[in-house]
Write a protein that binds this DNA or RNA. Structure first.
Length: 822
RNA sequence: GCCGAAGUGGCGGAACUGGCAGACGCGGCGGACUCAAAAUCCGUUGCCCGCAAGGGCGUGUGGGUUCGAGCCCCACCUUCGGCACCA
């Protein structure tokens, strides 16, 4: 039945044709509902969102994977009758464009515009069903005006504030970094070792939301456990006590935070962070003043990495702290294994029960006193730090608390301290406030004016946006390049009218991306950042898709923003993303694709060679979406063959003309089974590679009988089913063939539904085992009663060969298996 | 060190709820078509023994539970990811 001269599959022509068609029709544009005329409750809205790209100029396979995954899901949901919001935009501020401007000349704005144009063209070439009418770029004044407006709302509430603090500084990028942007003591962007600096910087008070960020994880419908774990670890909540030690021979007090108040009797020394403000006072005038000052100065010169990796060291201050629980004086040391940023910058050291304290005590010959031991008696012989982990341990040598189980001792000692005003329950967090200011040009200006008399004054809303000034020299100098724009910096104070200067730092780009998903809902609104009714209609995002690398960056920040905006009644929900899916990375030759490694496969080249449809199919066929995957140049040939087989099949079917399908032939049943598998995999299991395997199988089955004239009706039905099911993956070729079969507008056709009667088979194969080993198979009608199955199993020659005498018992799983035990 | 995920043919992977291990694809092998090649189509492809019928082994390792384990439990090994002076 092959036509004598089969027209060749020409993806370039077909894809261009349909892309132009859909674009002209605004096929995937989804206007906001008219809230005045109908109830929003009757509309089934679904917001599908993928993390927005940084426009580096090149779409890469990670993008192709991410957006194709979202696209398939979008198509299926749309065809199920959902109104799906599926927008796209660009995270356009940032160092890449600025560095390109420095290296190659040109303005970051022009470079960014060029990159956006190029990445947009590539995205359109992939044929994704995106609502382009909502396109947003975070570097446009129409967008960043509202980023500034939101910053001011945070500022009003005291959630954006400025203070001097030790911060992480990247010497290469010449800017500060948020804690989340430091990986192993190195800059997340460029890998340079970060330095510590004391600077006055802008922060968001994310620590105020630490508990809510933890507790409200319960509101999330489906997030990967590993992302939640990473966020929990990052927030690092730990419960313990704040205990006040007095300085011997003075009125001075030194509070500490500890998670182990039960070990208070084992505190044999006391340690201050080198940055601790009281060090000077404690040592003033003594023989220890100079060596301690030396040590502090020396520490300041150490890099963060060096400080963390070197052996612990420190210096004695000559002073003592009084243990509140027994009045015992213990020596106060200064050591840089104690961090000023956590707790109170001071610790009580319990060397018997803390490994770090133990190492320090060993080195300097300080007393090690065990106060917790296993309940069954006998102390561990080993002199190393014995860290209590279980509830079975009891306090020893701890005064009136001796004999209590460790958890009870913890409570009892805390209560004892609390009664005497010497301590109280306390909670510590690892999370630090989000350092948001950057000393770079290409970012959102912070809308603040500094006035000698009024301090930090917000720019009034009606003066927004504070436009990024034009400058010639983007080179980072350790302070913001904006400072050079003298005419821009000099301004008047909005409060007193006197001379004032603009804030010259720009915002971390993660601020821009902490609310973009809200803007999409109402992207063209020039009166407000968004209309709450519109945002509340679309959000929370029903399905968010992106890389796991944002677990403690974007995903944490966006949750924080949403909570704040809900608190100030701009949003009606607490969590931005109900369901999160984190996709794996794509590797080639065992490494992440990168230009320096020369292992990049560009989507452009793949589209050029195979077409977008084939690339879309292959990228999802490679393996489970959540796992890392290895790109194979040969592998894509398989999906190219699949498309080609469908192409030739459908053309042949079209040439034969319409035929009625019989009610329930084998191929009809196969088609229904495929509908069932594909739908279940995508919608229930959120699995995208096995549906393609199911389509391969269906097409293979069609090929087996396609030339048999008696099967013509079944072949046509199965072919149309295959086209309908492959449409979300390969929309162009599916649409083209659908049209050639005399139909139209496949992309808006209802998603097929399997007929359960046709999915079930009427004969089933029963596996017969003897002692759990496969011995025979039986073909029986579905629903055959157990006794009959056993009878038939025992009658089998192959079974009898392995059964000697009477079986001890038989196990039957209806319609599946019989196991004969002898 | 702590936390998490994962180990299945030559390769990517499938096996959803404890019930036929290896679906589907890549690669390999054989055949058809062709002067030939490519493309295409058909068949075959876990390992071992056997002419065959058939049998044995097999999901990182060792044990356990079960009529039955890739899946559950215990211990271990390896790989990947995250966190890591957080008191």
């Amino acid at each position: 039945m092959e036509p004598s001269e089969t027209e060749r599959y020409d993806p370039a022509a077909i894809e261009a044709k349909w892309q132009a068609f859909w674009s002209a029709e605004d096929a995937f544009v989804v206007p906001n509902p008219d809230f005045g005329s109908r109830s929003t409750a009757e509309l089934q809205s679904t917001y599908v969102l993928e993390m927005l790209p940084y426009p580096s100029g090149e779409l890469h396979m990670g993008h192709v994977f991410n957006y194709t995954l979202g696209d398939v899901f979008t198509h299926v949901r749309r065809r199920q009758g959902h109104t799906v919001l599926r927008p796209m935009g660009y995270d356009a501020f940032g160092l890449n464009a600025e560095n390109a401007a420095i290296n190659e000349g040109g303005h970051p704005r022009e470079i960014t515009a060029r990159n956006i144009e190029s990445i947009r063209r590539q995205m359109k070439r992939m044929g994704w069903a995106i609502d382009w009418s909502r396109e947003v770029s975070t570097a446009e004044p129409e967008y960043y005006r509202w980023t500034q407006w939101l910053f001011l709302r945070f500022f009003e509430r005291g959630l954006a504030y400025r203070r001097e603090a030790p911060v992480k500084w990247c010497p290469k990028d010449q800017t500060v970094l948020a804690n989340e942007q430091v990986i192993d003591g190195r800059c997340e962007r460029c890998g340079t070792e970060v330095e510590a600096r004391n600077l006055t910087q802008w922060f968001f008070k994310i620590t105020d939301y630490a508990d809510q960020l933890l507790d409200e994880m319960d509101l999330l419908e489906s997030w990967p456990e590993r992302v939640l774990t990473m966020q929990r670890n990052w927030i690092g909540r730990s419960e313990g006590a704040r205990v006040t030690f007095k300085v011997e021979g003075s009125d001075g007090e030194l509070p500490v935070f500890t998670t182990r108040p039960d070990t208070l009797f084992g505190a044999t020394f006391f340690v201050l962070a080198p940055e601790h403000p009281l060090i000077g006072t404690l040592t003033a005038g003594s023989e220890y003043e100079a060596p301690v000052a030396d040590y502090v100065r020396h520490t300041a010169g150490r890099s963060a990495v060096e400080r963390e990796t070197k052996e612990k060291d420190g210096v004695f201050t000559g002073r003592h702290a009084v243990n509140p629980v027994n009045g015992e004086p213990i020596p106060i040391w200064v050591a840089d294994y104690v961090l000023m940023e956590y707790g109170t910058g001071a610790i009580m050291a319990v060397p018997a029960h803390d490994e770090r304290d133990h190492a320090f005590a060993e080195k300097y010959g300080l007393e090690i006193r065990q106060v917790v031991a296993p309940a069954e008696g006998g102390r561990p012989a080993d002199a190393g730090a014995f860290v209590a982990h279980t509830d079975d341990e009891v306090l020893v040598d701890s005064g009136e608390f001796t004999g209590l189980a460790a958890p009870a001792g913890k409570k009892a000692i805390t209560a004892w301290l609390d009664e005497r005003g010497l301590g109280e329950e306390a909670i510590g967090y690892r999370l630090r406030d989000w350092l948001l200011s950057r000393q770079r040009y290409w970012g959102c200006p912070i809308p603040i004016v500094h006035c000698e008399t009024c301090g930090s004054v917000p720019v009034p809303d009606e003066q927004l946006p504070v436009l990024l000034p034009e400058i010639d020299d983007y080179l980072p100098k350790g302070k913001s390049p904006l400072a050079a724009a003298e005419g821009w910096v000099a301004t008047t104070c909005p409060s007193c009218g006197g001379a004032a200067r603009r804030e010259t730092d720009t915002m971390d780009t993660f601020v821009d991306s902490s609310w973009y998903f809200l803007r999409y809902a109402d992207a063209r609104n020039d009166e407000a950042a968004w209309d709450q009714q519109v945002v509340d209609y679309w959000l929370p995002v029903k399905q968010y898709i992106g890389g796991v690398e944002h677990a403690v960056l974007h995903l944490l920040y966006a949750r924080f923003f949403t909570k704040v905006l809900n608190d100030i009644e701009l949003l009606g929900f607490r969590e931005p993303f109900s369901r999160l899916f984190t996709q794996g990375m794509i590797y080639r030759h065992g490494a992440k694709m990168s230009k320096t490694k020369g292992n990049v496969v560009s989507p452009d080249a793949a589209v050029e060679r195979y077409g977008a449809d084939v690339l879309r199919l292959y990228i999802l066929y490679m393996g489970p979406a959540e796992q890392d995957k290895e790109w194979s140049d040969d592998g894509i040939e398989g999906t190219a063959r699949l498309v080609d087989r469908i192409w030739r099949l459908a053309l042949a079917v079209a040439q034969r003309g319409p035929v009625d399908a019989p009610a329930g032939g084998e191929l009809i049943r196969a088609a229904h089974r495929t509908i069932d598998r594909v739908s279940d995999d995508i919608l229930r299991r959120f699995q995208f590679h096995t549906p393609i395997a199911a389509l391969f199988e269906l097409v293979n089955e069609i090929y087996r009988v396609k030339d048999d004239p008696a099967s013509a009706g079944e072949v046509r039905f199965a072919t149309e089913t295959a086209l309908s099911l492959i449409q979300p993956y390969a929309p162009h070729v599916a649409e083209e063939l659908w049209e050639r079969l005399g139909n139209s507008r496949l992309w808006e056709l209802p998603w097929p539904e399997a007929n359960p009667a046709l999915v079930a088979t009427d004969t089933v194969e029963i596996v017969v085992q003897v002692n759990g080993k496969l011995r025979d198979r039986l073909q029986v009608p579905a629903g055959t009663p157990e006794e009959e199955l056993v009878e038939r199993a025992l009658a089998s020659e192959r079974v009898r060969a392995h059964v000697d005498g009477e079986p001890r018992r038989t196990v039957v799983v209806p319609d599946r298996l019989v196991n004969v035990v002898v």
